[in-house]
């Protein structure tokens, strides 16, 4: 039972990553695709942060009471990645708005249909 609890984060990482990928591939709405990308990124963040955890450790702020600290290095990497992820989704949303201005739709299958109709 306890082993299961110890592995739960890794398991959830796999499920979240794959469901993000699944949403990106199958959904036809562009906003939903961007949300899928955000889920994909967040799965990696949770995985990194759970690798950094030490049992009975505290947050890596030095003090005189504790002497076991969780690993600060993955935290730094994830801090950078979170901000870059928001920049990515902002750029994606701007592209979606531009697509809507040009095609009148944000559904991928409709846009493909219109393109085919126009080309023929």
């Amino acid at each position: 039972m306890t082993d299961f609890l110890y592995f739960w984060n890794h398991f959830a990482f796999v499920i979240l990553m794959v469901s993000g990928l699944f949403i990106i591939i199958t959904s036809q709405n562009y906003i939903k695709k961007i949300v899928g990308l955000a889920i994909f990124q967040t799965s990696v963040f949770v995985f990194f942060v759970s690798l950094a955890k030490i049992i009975d450790g505290t947050a890596p702020i030095l003090n005189s009471v504790n002497n076991v600290y969780s690993n600060p290095l993955p935290h730094v990497l994830i801090l950078t990645a979170i901000v870059v992820g928001v920049a990515t989704s902002a750029l994606g949303l701007a592209i979606v708005l531009q697509i809507y201005k040009n095609y009148g739709s944000v559904e991928e299958n409709e846009i493909k249909k219109e393109e085919l109709k126009e080309n023929s």
């Binding site: 906003i31 961007i34 949300v35 955000a38 967040t42 963040f45 942060v49 759970s50 950094a52 955890k53 030490i54 450790g57 505290t58 947050a59 890596p60 702020i61 600290y69 969780s70 993955p74 935290h75 994830i78 801090l79 979170i82 901000v83 992820g85 928001v86 989704s89 902002a90 949303l93 979606v96 708005l97 809507y100 739709s105 944000v106």
Partner: peptide, 30 residues
């Protein structure tokens, strides 16, 4: 998981700014 700095950034940037940007975009979409 003891990552307080990451939590702070996620709450401010991921949950705040990202959601505001998405609401602004969705308001213009069908």
């Amino acid at each position: 998981l003891d990552a307080v700095d990451v939590a702070f950034t996620e709450a401010a940037v991921g949950s705040g700014i990202s959601t505001i940007l998405m609401v602004m975009a969705v308001a213009k979409l069908p």
